[in-house]
């Protein structure tokens, strides 16, 4: 597609969109530019999405594209040159955002001036600062109406840049429960252990469906998210994973090879003072409260 032609196409789509402020579906778009093949259409839509012209909505199972309000563009109209430069840089960075240091280097503005510009843009609600999950001190700027990228916001596990560990814990437990329900299938299976093992395996997609059906998650979890959780189970030693011939990862709940060993059955094994406990001195086994309590039972 030449640039000219693609501009033309974009313009046509935008026209339709402007007429329907409630949003349009991809069928409407196809109708607007019937001469395009579906692949070309998709390319065009993607381009528009990238430019951040559309917001994407899910309505009654079908996707709706709605034109974003163009205030920001207009807001910038009245701005001075510095603001325009900075705005453009930020716009270019898309939903990944741009770091203040990079803006400074690329805009050639002095530090104080740049802060002032950013302040004013922020005040006009044209841009926003987003805390980056990877580096807590690092802030990135992006256009106000953009949804931050996963790498910035951290995806499903973050709420306002705070890691939601309780949420992860709950998911971790639910996944395990799901795997455990079928874990026993391998035991003495009359059709042999391989069939048994296959029956006790679960794919990430199955687990994802189970979790979604449970309805414990406010956000939609992708299969990748569930894989991340399942992997924590593997690191917990509560599951093993394997790869099917078709490349799908499967998971199975397992037992530890050993029952809790002797060390953790005595109070010393879990005692925080074990390295300070001696035959003489303040902490001795004879005087030990932990021992006493344990023997009381």
């Amino acid at each position: 597609m030449s640039d000219n032609k693609s501009d033309e196409v974009s313009e046509k789509i935008l026209n339709v969109a402007r007429k329907n402020p409630k949003g349009i579906s991809d069928k409407d778009m196809a109708a607007a530019v019937p001469e395009l093949t579906s692949a070309e259409l998709v390319a065009a839509i993607n381009k528009l999405l990238q430019q951040g012209v559309f917001d994407l909505y899910n309505q009654g199972g079908s996707l709706l594209y709605r034109l974003k309000n163009q205030n920001s563009k207009q807001a910038i109209k009245g701005a001075d040159n510095e603001e325009k430069v900075v705005y453009n840089l930020i716009e270019e960075a898309g939903n990944k955002g741009i770091w203040i240091r990079d803006i400074r280097i690329r805009s050639n503005l002095a530090n104080t001036q740049l802060t002032k510009v950013l302040k004013s843009l922020e005040g006009k609600k044209v841009i926003k600062a987003v805390k980056c999950v990877n580096a807590s001190k690092k802030k990135v700027y992006m256009l106000f109406n953009l949804e931050p990228d996963r790498s910035v916001s951290g995806g499903a596990w973050y709420q306002d840049q705070d890691f939601e560990s309780e949420f992860v814990d709950i998911l971790n437990r639910q996944c395990l429960r799901f795997l455990q329900q079928r874990a026993d299938k391998i035991k003495n299976n009359p059709r042999g252990p391989i069939v048994g093992r296959t029956q006790s395996y679960a794919t990430a997609a199955e687990v994802q469906k189970y979790i979604t059906d449970l309805g414990i998650s406010k956000v939609k979890l992708e299969v990748e998210d569930v894989i991340t959780i399942l992997n924590t189970l593997v690191y917990d030693g509560k599951a093993e994973s394997n790869v099917y011939p078709d490349g799908n990862r499967v998971y199975r709940a397992i037992e530890s090879l050993l029952p809790p060993p002797g060390l953790v059955q005595v109070p010393c094994g879990v005692c925080p003072l074990i390295h300070k406990c001696n035959s003489t001195g303040l902490i001795t086994p004879q005087e030990c409260k932990y021992m006493d309590e344990w023997l009381e039972q």
Binding site: G237, S256, P260, P261, V270
Partner: peptide, 22 residues
Amino acid sequence: EALCDHTVTERLGGKAARIFRL
């Protein structure tokens, strides 16, 4: 390894054991 896992789990908790195994 299983012994180590148990010991870490009991001494420092399941999260520490996760890190340890990881």
